[in-house]
Amino acid sequence: MIKKEIKSLTGIRGIAAIYVAVFHFYLHYTQSNSNNFLSKNSYLHSLLYHGYLGVDLFFILSAFVITLTSSKYFEDKFEFKDYKNFMIKRWIRIYPTYAIILIVTFFYSGQTHRVGNFLLSFSLLNSLFGLPYLVGHFWSLSTEWVTYMTYPILYRLFSAARLLKWQLLILIGILILYSTCVLYYKEYAIQPFSFVINGGYYGLFRCFGDYFLGVFAFKIFSHYPKSKEIAGITSIVIIFILICLLSFAKADLLIVILFVALILSLTNDNNVVSKLMSTKPIYILGLISYPLYLIHAILLYYLDYLKTLLSIFYGYNNFYLILMLLFLALSVIFSYIFTFFIEKPIISFCNKKIHRVG
């Protein structure tokens, strides 16, 4: 019997959220002070700058977990009742938290003049129409919401056509990601094979490609049980290779493919990395990962105030590591409070209402 929750996957989600937060801090840090020791070291710069790939790990994990819990409803049939229940569960999971943080961001980030964009953002359909976001990293919420809308339909169509073959899934995923990179590179002149793609139709295709890889990972997991044992043995090697690749440019596509191997390795409860990701502190980090992903950006708006305060004690050139740790600590604390005192009670309330109506 397949478990509904794999704790190590929840844990790695928390690590991905921290990695994205570090990336956003680093961008803010290098923009405000380009003469710093982090950006001078090319390997360290690449490692920190690749934090945007944490979003791809989010997408692949989401596809894996959603397929784990919901594919049975769309494998052999498609009924509107199942589709409605799927979308309601997804709405309860992401929308209340998103709406609250969207409102807070609007009033506390100095963007109250963007009323039209603020109201549009409530629809979560910005990516479908190629429209801007109130806050940059909200693009991933919009693209994933659109992907939720299409996932059951595509899954059923692929299943009916007998196209849910692991070879085809990984091929489609890679082709979508590769094509998106090439087209985005031509239009915006970024590094080829770089996944710094956030928003509009390109962001949507990035999410679609990652979802195909996530479904591929599930198919390997469910149909080839020994694969997780093999991957489990090599989990430390996978982590080592990922860290090495993250330290170099132009390896994004390979890194994202290796995320699949990482996820498969973490489904094995007996390996060292899986046990580490399942420890209570990292598991809790995974539980608060969604609010953490949203909340940390609000704190970035107040980073300059923290910088000024710390400079009184440490001088302007010696406190960035302390500033980053303080930023991460505050992000985790606020996210923890939000998760257990706001998000979970709201989700519980919504689920009770749905059950009563049902």
Score class of each variant (00 low, 15 high):
2 I>R: 14
2 I>C: 06
5 E>I: 15
8 S>E: 09
14 G>F: 07
17 A>S: 12
22 V>T: 05
24 H>L: 01
25 F>Q: 00
37 F>T: 02
39 S>D: 02
41 N>C: 03
50 H>N: 13
52 Y>H: 13
60 I>H: 08
61 L>T: 13
64 F>A: 08
67 T>S: 15
71 S>V: 01
71 S>G: 04
73 Y>C: 08
74 F>N: 03
85 N>Y: 05
90 R>P: 07
93 R>V: 06
94 I>R: 06
110 G>D: 06
122 F>R: 12
123 S>T: 15
124 L>S: 10
127 S>D: 14
129 F>W: 12
130 G>I: 04
134 L>N: 03
142 S>C: 14
146 V>R: 02
147 T>I: 10
149 M>A: 10
152 P>V: 11
156 R>Y: 15
160 A>E: 15
160 A>V: 13
160 A>H: 12
165 K>F: 11
167 Q>M: 07
181 C>F: 13
185 Y>T: 14
197 I>H: 01
205 F>A: 12
209 G>C: 11
209 G>W: 10
213 L>A: 07
225 P>G: 06
229 E>Y: 12
232 G>E: 03
235 S>G: 03
248 F>Q: 09
260 V>Q: 06
263 I>Y: 07
265 S>E: 01
270 N>E: 15
272 V>S: 09
276 L>W: 14
276 L>R: 09
285 L>S: 12
293 Y>A: 09
299 L>H: 09
300 L>F: 04
306 L>E: 06
307 K>V: 00
310 L>E: 00
311 S>G: 01
311 S>Y: 03
312 I>T: 07
313 F>D: 00
313 F>Y: 07
316 Y>Q: 05
321 L>D: 00
323 L>P: 00
332 V>R: 00
332 V>P: 00
334 F>A: 12
344 K>W: 09
350 C>I: 01
